[in-house]
Each structure stands twice: as structure tokens, then as C-alpha cells.
Amino acid sequence: MAAATALKIGEVAKRSGLTVKTIRFYCDEGLVHPTGRSDGGYRLFNDAIFAELTLIRTLKAMDIPLHDVLQVLASRRSGVCTCSSLQATLRAKAGEIEQKIVALRSLYNELHTLLDQWKDCGGRKNSDNTG
């Protein structure tokens, strides 16, 4: 590996926004793999680590279990995904996200309709208020 592309775990953490501890955990769980070790024993990574960390973060945000994240990463690395249950899990998550998007769009539209209909009270008290 060329020295210019060898990144220590601290640099990966800094650039990715993750902690060193999190990256070590991902290494220990087999989610990411260092490309080598420095003379001092530090884990070394290349720039490809950032795409993998982004994918892990995305899948975790969808509450995909770590063992499924590992399968996704392995499939991505091999370029072949033949696991129908994993594909079904990802399709189901995509469906859940689409439902949330529809619900949020509806709420957004309702709020804007309410705001469009809102009358400025001009700082006056409501005449129905006897207090």
C-alpha cells in the first residue's frame, strides 16, 4: 500500500465523524477490514473505508441488524447478492421509509395549509375571552 493512501484509525475517525472505538468495534465484528498494519501495529485503511462506513451508518439508521449489515457489505464487496431473505429485509425497510415519507408529506401539507389560513391577530385579545 502506498504511504499516501494509508490512513491510521485516528485519521479515519476524524474524517468520518465516528469514534476510534466505533471503528475498532466494526473491525472486531468483521464489518470493516484494515488493509494492513503499520510498523507500530496501527490499523491502516485506504479511502474505500469511507464508503463502507457511510453504508454501515445508513443501514444502522434503518435498524438493520449487524449480522445483516455484514451480509450487505460482503455482497457489496463480491458484487453478488443471492440472499433472498436479505433482499426481502432491505425491500421491507425501503417500503417502511416510503410510508414514512408519505406520512411526513401529508403532515407537511397540513401544516402549510394551516399556516396559509392563519389570520394575524394583530396583538389583540380574543373578544370571546372574558378574562
Rank of each mutant, 00 (worst) to 15 (best):
M1G: 12
A2I: 11
A2P: 00
A3F: 05
A3P: 11
T5R: 13
A6S: 15
A6C: 13
L7F: 14
I9P: 02
G10P: 08
G10S: 13
G10Q: 07
E11W: 02
V12A: 09
V12H: 03
G17P: 02
G17S: 06
T19D: 08
K21V: 03
K21R: 15
K21I: 00
T22H: 02
I23W: 03
I23L: 05
R24I: 12
F25D: 01
F25I: 10
Y26N: 07
C27K: 07
D28Q: 15
D28P: 02
D28V: 03
D28K: 15
D28H: 13
D28M: 11
L31Q: 01
V32T: 11
V32M: 06
V32K: 05
P34T: 03
P34K: 04
P34E: 04
T35Q: 12
G36R: 07
G36Q: 09
R37L: 14
G40T: 07
G40A: 15
G40E: 05
Y42D: 09
L44V: 10
L44M: 12
N46G: 11
N46I: 03
N46E: 15
N46A: 11
A48S: 13
A48H: 09
A48L: 12
I49K: 06
F50P: 03
F50R: 08
E52Y: 04
E52M: 07
E52K: 13
E52T: 15
R57E: 14
R57K: 12
T58F: 14
T58Q: 15
L59V: 05
K60G: 03
K60L: 07
A61R: 11
I64P: 02
I64V: 14
P65L: 08
L66D: 01
L66V: 08
L66G: 00
H67Y: 02
V69F: 03
V69G: 02
Q71L: 09
V72T: 11
L73A: 01
A74E: 10
V80L: 14
V80E: 14
C81H: 06
C81Q: 10
C81R: 13
C81V: 09
C83D: 15
C83Y: 00
C83W: 01
S84F: 03
S84E: 12
S85I: 03
L86I: 04
Q87V: 04
T89P: 07
T89H: 05
T89D: 05
T89Q: 10
L90I: 06
L90N: 05
K93L: 01
K93R: 13
E96N: 08
E96I: 00
E96K: 00
I97Q: 10
I97W: 07
E98D: 10
K100E: 11
I101C: 00
V102W: 00
V102A: 14
V102N: 02
L104P: 01
R105E: 06
S106F: 02
S106A: 08
S106D: 01
S106K: 07
L107Q: 12
L107A: 15
L107Y: 06
H112I: 04
T113C: 06
L114S: 08
L114G: 02
L114Y: 13
D116W: 00
D116V: 01
Q117M: 08
W118R: 12
D120K: 05
D120R: 05
C121I: 11
C121A: 13
G122N: 10
G123V: 06
R124T: 14
K125W: 10
K125F: 08
K125A: 14
N126S: 10
D128L: 15
N129I: 08
T130Y: 02
T130G: 00
T130K: 13
G131S: 06
G131D: 11
